[in-house]
Design a protein around this nucleic acid. Structure first.
Length: 258
DNA sequence: GCCCTTGTTACGCC
DNA sequence: AGGCGTAACAAGGG
């Protein structure tokens, strides 16, 4: 599940595209956002990639024409010049079947960028509207977080999963960060103390880059392997709990998360 | 063949 | 109006 961390890895993998000319575009109509199919060839072919940016889970490739936006859904992987940025995606298939290529840019120099996605939940857009997204998960400040939680009654987990609040957090990263910050997922956001919000912010700034360096959102201490086996809490040995919070499977420790 | 997975969105309620 | 919860949907894997 490409959360913001995976997409940051994808963004880095896409940087070699900068300065290269787009010669050909192939897109599965089912991953093209409305209207894109009609425009994309005319507006992108012959253009040059100028930069590779990211906001939350959106990869943004600026060209001298429109900006290309790619959202990777749950199982989309990027492959640049035939090298996959991530070999094995959590919940993905781990294979690279040609029939799962949903989007491909062929460059004038013969190279390519493609999106391989078994389940077709990726979305390709032109000049995506990202104005509704919150601050990026790797950049969000304490003040932004404090303002975001104030007056909100929703569980903190539901709030953090809301891309309008913080862009890029997914189910695994939220569980991981709350576990480190010692905050229960169902804790009403607005009832967190200043100290708890500070701990949450500090844990995001501290642990998300470590997970990024290790390879993504599944490389935390409450990893998917842990989640499946549901072992005892590595911090205090208590039995972990699995329940639904914010509509998602949630694993947490009822002893140290309050 | 049912049920699991996640991110997004539509929708109903308050 | 807008915050919130729930369900539906995408489709392959176990």
């Amino acid at each position: 599940m490409p959360e913001g961390l995976e997409v940051e890895i994808y963004r880095r993998a896409a940087e070699p595209l900068i300065g290269r000319e787009i010669a050909r575009i192939e897109v599965d109509e089912r991953v093209a956002a409305p209207g894109v199919l009609d425009r994309i060839d005319d507006e992108l072919r012959g253009g040059t990639v100028l930069s590779a940016r990211r906001l939350g889970k959106q990869l943004l490739l600026d060209t001298d024409g429109p900006t290309l936006g790619v959202h990777f859904g749950m199982t989309g992987r990027i492959v640049v010049d035939d090298v996959a940025a991530i070999d094995q995606l959590e919940y993905g298939s781990g294979r690279d079947e040609p029939r799962w290529d949903r989007f491909r840019i062929t460059l004038a120099d013969g190279g390519s960028m493609r999106v391989n996605d078994p389940r077709r939940w990726s979305r390709v857009t032109l000049d995506p509207d990202i104005s509704g997204l919150g601050p990026d998960l790797l950049e969000v400040t304490y003040d932004q977080l404090r303002i975001a939680v104030s007056g909100r009654s929703r569980p903190i987990k539901a709030l953090l999963l809301d891309q309008h609040v913080v862009a890029g957090l997914g189910n695994l990263c939220v569980d991981e960060v709350l576990w480190h910050a010692r905050i229960a997922p169902a804790h009403p956001a607005g009832e967190l103390t200043g100290g708890e919000v500070a701990a949450l912010h500090r844990c995001m700034r501290q642990h998300l880059p470590v997970m990024l360096d290790r390879g993504g959102s599944h490389r935390g201490e409450v990893s998917p392997a842990f989640r499946a086996a549901l072992p005892s809490c590595p911090q205090d040995g208590a039995a972990l709990v699995r329940e639904t919070v914010g509509g998602r499977t949630t694993v947490w420790c009822p002893v140290h998360q309050v």
